[in-house]
Write a protein that binds this DNA or RNA. Structure first.
Lengths: 207, 207
DNA sequence: GAACTTTTTTGCAGTCACTGCAAGTTTGCA
DNA sequence: TGCAAACTTGCAGTGACTGCAAAAAAGTTC
């Protein structure tokens, strides 16, 4: 009775995880991140505190909704592009795909998250720190595509640049969400792609 | 009796801070970061636990030796370069100056830190998160130099890229310290400067 | 050097994140 | 129905971190 890919158990776990994530973000947006206790979060999601920690290693992780599947999924995506695509493009597309997918499936959640991150930008950085092994995984994938040794700087730099692009885009998006997050990320990637050595033109009125 | 720039008090504070930093790094290198308690650190530095927290907001900060003066100092440096220097170069030089200065004055400490960060790369990321206001300050300085509005992506991206360059350089340095840290940072900046769109050549034997 | 102000240190009590362990409960499967 | 594996929970404990108010320096003034 386990064909449809999702057992009762799996569905329940998914729901619990989502409930915890949602509760964390909602409460943090309303009361301020550090005025929210894990106890409250667990209560809102209708589970015990201990269960909260079965799902997330920390409050930070819950806020950002750290998903262990993201890393592997993106690595797979990066490697799936045909060889004619540069590592840079492959990676950029993977990031964008992930973001738009995420945003499509949980836009309201991200709007709340935005509120929180507006008040505490450091949380975004901290949250990305936990994804260290994911970064390692992605860097390996990029290295393979770029035909560079594992320990070369380029893959790490590119992957980290992706994080930065995302982070900065979110920060800017938080100040003014008339721009689409995806566009901001794209713009950031463009700057990284073209090189930071020269200052970009400042288009009045545009971004 | 307060002319020579440093009163007894100032000297003592400096020494205490250094002792705490040193104790944190040393113990972490020996016993592993999370097997070290603040109590032990304080004991080794011969102060109370409460005093530890008067100097550092967290254990993380003590490990990295977060210095509140670095941000302002670098911002000043960035602005001090003549107008003929590009923002990119100004920033790159400021970062390098800071690093070599730091390394010259406390090389052994950094060698110990390396040990710790080798085992827990995420700590470096986390530590940089606390420097969020510093990043803001630096971004403003860069924006001014680049004649871009405060909220443009470029300054934030450049400053964050600097953090990344440093982080990745340290990570790589930790694996093989036959290369000078400064050279690795320079290499990273070069890649960012030239643009990540194209894959760099892989020089056999070289870096 | 005594009296006074300002800074720094300290102890203490308390909150909260997070962990391991040993039940208890639920779900999957035969 | 009955067993095994997966999930949840409570509990006890550790340790980071904070606010507060008193003790101890250090700097200043006469």
């Amino acid at each position: 009775m386990n064909q449809p890919g999702e057992s009762l158990r799996d569905r329940k776990k998914r729901r619990t995880r989502a409930a915890l994530e949602r509760a964390t973000v909602r409460l943090a947006a309303v009361k301020g991140y550090d005025h929210v206790t894990v106890e409250e979060i667990a209560a809102e999601a209708d589970v015990s505190v201990r269960t909260f920690f079965n799902y997330f290693a920390s409050k930070d992780e819950a806020l950002i909704g750290a998903d262990p599947e993201v890393g592997p999924r993106m690595a797979e995506r990066v490697l799936a592009f045909p060889d004619t695509v540069t590592p840079f493009e492959a990676y950029r597309c993977s990031v964008l795909a992930e973001i738009t997918e995420e945003l499509d499936s949980a836009r309201e959640l991200w709007l709340l998250r935005k509120e929180v991150l507006m008040q505490r930008p450091d949380l975004l950085v901290r949250a990305f720190a936990s994804g260290a092994e994911s970064e390692q995984l992605l860097a390996s994938a990029v290295a393979r595509r770029a035909e560079l040794p594992e320990d070369h700087l380029y893959p790490r730099l590119l992957v980290s640049a992706g994080s930065v692009a995302f982070r900065c885009a979110v920060t800017r998006w938080a100040l003014d969400d008339s721009l689409a997050l995806g566009d901001l990320v794209t713009e950031a990637f463009d700057l990284f792609g073209a090189g930071l050595a020269h200052v970009p033109h400042h288009r009045e009125g545009g971004s």
